[in-house]
Simulated assay, not measured.
Amino acid sequence: MEFNFLEKSELKDIILRCSKNDRIAQEKLYRSFFGLFYTIAKDYVADHELVTEIINQAFLKIFVNIATFDEKKGPFEGWSKRILQNVCIDIYRREKNRPFTEEISDESAQGYFNEQTHSTIFNEDMAKVFQQLPDMTRKVCQMYLVEGYPHKEIGEVLGLSESTSRWHLMEGKKKLRELLKDKYGE
Rank of each mutant, 00 (worst) to 15 (best):
F3K: 10
F3M: 14
L6Q: 07
K8C: 06
S9F: 11
K12I: 00
I15R: 00
R17W: 09
C18P: 04
S19P: 01
K20V: 04
N21M: 12
N21I: 05
D22Q: 12
D22P: 03
K28M: 06
K28F: 02
L29W: 03
Y30L: 02
R31W: 05
R31T: 08
F34N: 08
G35T: 03
G35P: 01
Y44D: 05
H48F: 11
E49R: 13
L50F: 08
L50S: 11
L50G: 07
V51D: 04
V51K: 01
T52W: 08
T52V: 15
E53I: 12
I54Y: 01
I55T: 02
F59M: 07
L60P: 06
L60V: 14
K61Q: 15
F63V: 04
I66V: 04
T68Q: 12
D70P: 02
G74M: 01
F76K: 11
F76M: 09
G78L: 11
K81F: 06
Q85Y: 07
Q85D: 11
D90Q: 15
I91K: 15
Y92P: 09
E95N: 14
E95S: 13
K96P: 11
N97I: 13
R98H: 14
F100W: 09
E102L: 10
E102N: 06
E103Q: 13
I104G: 00
D106K: 11
D106L: 14
A109R: 10
A109W: 12
Y112K: 00
E115I: 01
Q116M: 15
T117Q: 15
H118W: 12
H118K: 10
S119K: 12
I121G: 04
I121C: 06
E124S: 05
D125C: 02
M126R: 04
F130W: 07
Q131Y: 05
Q132H: 10
Q132P: 06
L133F: 02
L133C: 06
P134K: 02
P134S: 10
D135F: 08
M136Y: 02
R138A: 11
R138T: 09
V140H: 02
V140F: 00
C141P: 05
Q142T: 14
Q142D: 11
Q142W: 02
Y144M: 12
V146N: 07
E147R: 01
G148F: 03
Y149F: 07
H151Q: 04
E153F: 00
E153I: 04
E156P: 03
V157M: 05
V157L: 13
V157D: 07
G159L: 09
L160S: 06
S163T: 09
G172F: 01
K174Y: 08
K175C: 07
L176Y: 12
R177Q: 15
L180I: 10
K183H: 13
E186A: 11
